[in-house]
Write a protein that binds this DNA or RNA. Structure first.
Length: 649
RNA sequence: GGGCCCGUAGUCUAGGAUGGAUUAGGACGCUGGCCUGCGGAGCCGGAGAUCCUGGGUUCAAAUCCCAGCGGGCCCGCCA
């Protein structure tokens, strides 16, 4: 017999036993839901029910006395996966597992189902779009943004494993002032071919250009302010100017040639600010020259992203260009529809969406968990010059996505919570309440650097590439030290998946809502509670199986008597339930945590018991089967968080 | 001013939706052991915690509610 979820099988048996026993004692009592949990201590049993606490209230009896009567009423002839039932504590009913049967069920299930084990299928398969990463094509992906692809990709893997039809989308944000800035600088340089990784090259041009333009703009503003404004205003501009001047010095030091050239070329422009704005307008209008230029720059940067992302094992099914939404008329269409609602106000060409009013009219306060007096701020949809804003286009994009999917998950930092809420409110205002309900903003907290804030505009960031390179380099040193016998090429290969695995694990392991302060120790961890530790454990298990050079044929599961062996079996049986929870609640960190725990248990086992040399062979074979099952589950778990499970390292 | 998120040993972190048998689980660091077994990226042990504070709900609160404190983020014709 095999089962896709052995633990669920066990719980079912416990539930039937319990319900029948309760019925015997008190035929009238109906318990709708029966929660079965895991006792805090292994020796109490493996499954527990607190039903008697509730029941005791109804029957006016002491919980423990009731629990004792219930356990006596249990029909022991129906035991299959259960060994024993006892009343304990203040009134708990504890089930002890029959491990001869449960080990057989669990280990056989894992080994027979292999790559499918744990990935319990949903009965409501949906078309799901997971949009993640979507870093603007202006500069390399930095470590502050790197949490996004790790989480997004893991979520996509979880949902696909759950049986949903998942599509991974990257939203290319090529519309807006920032893209115009980089394109402007790129053109001023004469559209140079990058002599390095293209996104790094683009990043430099972007930072320098935006710095020069900013200083230029502030200087003009200062002139003006001196004529008309108060001293306070002038001081403020001066402070900003000082700030940018400092950055200019930094950049000039770091990239003297590029800086000089841009300074000179931009200096020839009477009014860079207005050139940039003109470029932005032209692009939105679909002007041929603007299109060619901005697409070229963006593609160049994306080329770099793709290299980075494929190195960490992240790929996409669709690259959605924001500009396409504008040019196809979809954005205008949505704007028209919004204008027909009662929630738009127009002041001198500027269009505002009155989200607060929608909340009141449609009674959405509770749905969004808003406090009683809090008024959701209005959202500007269209600038005075007629160009649209980011969230406006995102509304159109969301509706576009819902043509292809019935659930959309946006992996976006929590600093955009308000915008995402406004977007959702807009969907309600347009009558797309179903879509609004099926739209999830998967928010995660920021990664900060100790001491200062990362700023891509200011060019202050640590890139994901740097982090990966450093991790792989460190991994290489570790490999050389620990496995000197390996060939050079082999060492490089191992260093790559160990280093990358470490980075992925480190970023997916922590609860996404918690803020993370970046430090190298976090991602360069090769010891316990890290991907390398789990990878090592997997390789160790593989090594035993390799050395055995036989399949476990004469298996006697009743010989797996040690508590540790039972604990491992139980942990294997839990995997499907952990997976379901992780997939339903979008918590990839549960998988990371689970894999680490299983690895811990396995290493303890490894140290305590021989496998190959165990006697008799029935025991050896049973342990071999256990090792094989652990190997399988570790691999399946690692796959879900995008970490490679090596057979050797 | 208003809103959102976070606050657990020196450091990092689990648990929190569904309050219970908890004595708050783990890692790093510190510290004492284990190289004759199948990979030491390992194993076993020790010390180390006002679960931010104060109220409330409850027979029972790290968990739920309220107020406050600390850190971060947002409230833009930026994205």
């Amino acid at each position: 017999m095999i089962s896709a979820a052995p633990l669920t099988e066990l719980k079912k048996e416990c539930e039937i036993l319990l319900r029948e026993a309760i019925k015997k004692i008190s035929p009238e009592t109906m318990l709708e839901t029966l929660v079965l949990e895991k006792p805090p201590v292994w020796d109490f049993g493996q499954i527990a029910s607190s039903a008697c606490f509730e029941l005791a209230k109804k029957l006016g009896e002491k919980p423990l006395a009731l629990a004792e009567r219930v356990t006596e009423a249990v029909d022991k002839s129906k035991f299959s996966l259960v060994q024993n039932v006892v009343a304990a504590g203040g009134g708990y009913i504890n089930f002890h597992v029959n491990f001869t049967n449960f080990s057989a069920l669990t280990i056989d299930s894992v080994r027979r189902m292999d790559t499918a084990y744990g990935l319990v299928k949903t009965d409501k398969s949906l078309e799901v779009i997971v949009e993640h990463t979507s870093v603007n094509p202006l500069h390399p992906i930095h470590i502050g943004q790197a949490r996004n692809p790790m989480l997004g990709d893991s979520i996509a893997r979880l949902l696909a494993g759950r049986g949903h039809s998942v599509s991974r989308h990257y939203y290319v944000d090529d519309v807006g002032r920032q893209t115009a800035v980089i394109a402007y600088g790129y053109e001023k340089l004469g559209k140079p071919r990058p002599i390095e990784k293209p996104d790094h090259f683009i990043g430099k041009i972007y930072t320098i250009t935006s710095c020069i333009v900013e200083i230029n703009r502030l200087k003009k503003e200062l002139e003006l302010a001196k004529l008309v404004s108060a001293e306070e205003e002038i001081a403020k501009i001066n402070r900003e100017l000082d700030d940018w001047t400092a950055i200019a010095f930094e950049l000039k030091e770091k990239y003297p040639e590029l800086f000089e050239k841009l300074l000179q070329k931009i200096g020839e422009d009477e009014n860079p600010e207005s050139s940039i704005n003109a470029l932005n307008r032209a692009y939105e209008a679909g002007d041929e020259k603007a299109r060619l230029l901005i697409r070229e720059v963006s593609e160049l940067c994306l080329e770099g992203f793709k290299e980075t992302l494929s190195r960490i094992g992240v790929s996409y099914d669709s690259w959605d260009w924001e500009s396409d939404l504008v040019w196809s008329g979809l954005v205008i269409e949505v704007l028209q529809k919004l204008k027909q609602t009662r929630y738009i106000s127009a002041v001198g060409g500027v269009l505002e969406f009155e989200a607060g009013k929608v909340v009141e009219d449609l009674g959405l306060r509770e749905k969004f968990g808003l406090r009683k007096d809090y008024e959701v701020p209005s959202l500007t949809l269209v600038r005075a010059d007629g160009t649209t804003l980011y969230t406006t286009r995102d509304i159109a994009y969301t509706l576009w996505k819902f043509r292809k999917a019935n659930r959309c998950i946006n992996v976006i930092g929590m600093e955009q919570s308000l915008a995402q809420t406004q977007l959702k409110i807009a969907l309600y205002a347009l009558g797309y309440s179903e879509q609004a309900e099926n739209l999830t903003h998967f928010a995660y907290n920021l990664v900060t650097l100790p001491g200062y804030k990362m700023s891509s505009r200011r060019g202050r960031y640590i890139t994901l590439d740097e982090v990966m390179n450093e991790a792989v380099e460190r991994a290489y040193q570790e490999v050389s030290r620990r496995s000197p016998q390996l060939e050079e090429e082999e060492k490089r290969k191992v260093a790559e998946f160990v280093g990358i695995g470490a980075v992925r694990y480190a970023l997916v392991e922590v609860d996404p809502l918690k803020p993370v302060e970046f430090n190298w120790d976090r991602v360069l961890n090769f010891e316990k509670n890290s991907a390398p530790y789990i990878q090592y454990t997997h390789a160790r298990a593989c090594s035993i199986l390799r050395k055995a050079s036989r399949k476990p044929e004469k298996v006697s599961y009743d010989l797996l008597k040690a508590k540790l062996e039972n604990e491992i079996v139980f942990a294997l049986a839990e995997f499907p339930e952990v997976f379901v929870e992780a997939a339903e609640f979008l918590k990839p960190n549960l998988i990371a945590d689970y894999a680490n725990n299983l690895a811990d248990k396995f290493n303890t086992f490894y140290n305590a018991f021989p496998v190959l040399k165990a006697e008799p062979q029935e025991l050896s074979d049973a342990r071999l089967a256990l090792v094989d099952a652990v190997r399988t589950v570790l691999r399946n778990a690692l796959n879900l968080i995008g970490v490679f499970a090596p057979e050797k390292m």
